[in-house]
Design a protein around this nucleic acid. Sequence first.
DNA 1: TCCTTAGTTCAAAAGTTATTGAACAATTGG
DNA 2: CCAATTGTTCAATAACTTTTGAACTAAGGA
Lengths: 118, 118
Amino acid sequence: MTLPHPTADQISLPIVLAVLGDPTRLAIVRFLASKEGVPMNCGKFLDLASKTNLSYHLAKLREAGVTRTEAVGTSRLITLRRDDLDKRFPGLLDSVIAAAGEDKALPMVGTVDSEIDA
Amino acid sequence: MTLPHPTADQISLPIVLAVLGDPTRLAIVRFLASKEGVPMNCGKFLDLASKTNLSYHLAKLREAGVTRTEAVGTSRLITLRRDDLDKRFPGLLDSVIAAAGEDKALPMVGTVDSEIDA
DNA sequence: TCCTTAGTTCAAAAGTTATTGAACAATTGG
DNA sequence: CCAATTGTTCAATAACTTTTGAACTAAGGA
């Protein structure tokens, strides 16, 4: 049950940048980074967009190689591909995440605390 | 003769990422970085796109706060806004440039040596 | 089995970005 | 002044991206 992902060397810089250039997707990545190690399912992001729209954005992130999505039952477990991104583009993800962390203009995942905790 | 630029604090992360997510613009930035300190005019980028199209892409870079454009005579002198970008998004520009430097898939400025030198 | 939960797919609509060519403006050199 | 050089603007078009809702699949629990 693994969805199509690019291999590490297929990850393209302009595509990664373009994919991160969308506020919704950047918010997803920031949240994944803030909970690194803990795989998230799509539902965690429902305050960013509709279910259908999330499916679209999460597919973009996966196809760009930014996230890894594993199907487990009816759920999708989503993680950052930090290892591969760091290998391909050293320092990029960290600086993006740090910059995004400061950004009050980005949409927020889990403003309601009850939605954050496992 | 200064064209409209955002102030440092108006520079937005998603906009910068989206702007850098275009291969033509990323090639421009990579070239500017490789010649840092030396202001370039638009003509330097004519092997990337048409004059009209360059005008469009260079305006995008300027409006995003990635470059600074100064009008001198009929020329535009274009520089990277490294100071402002480093202040706003520490490490971001460097990691993007380093990653772009390795990228054989990006269009190249000045493959013909005669077009590079001052 | 039936219902719910989790997420996808599809096609349409809406919105945005990129590219083009023709016409324009401004400066510089002869 | 005239012509060349440098780059912009405009409108059109092409090409993509995002968003939507309805219909769907697949797994899990009662």
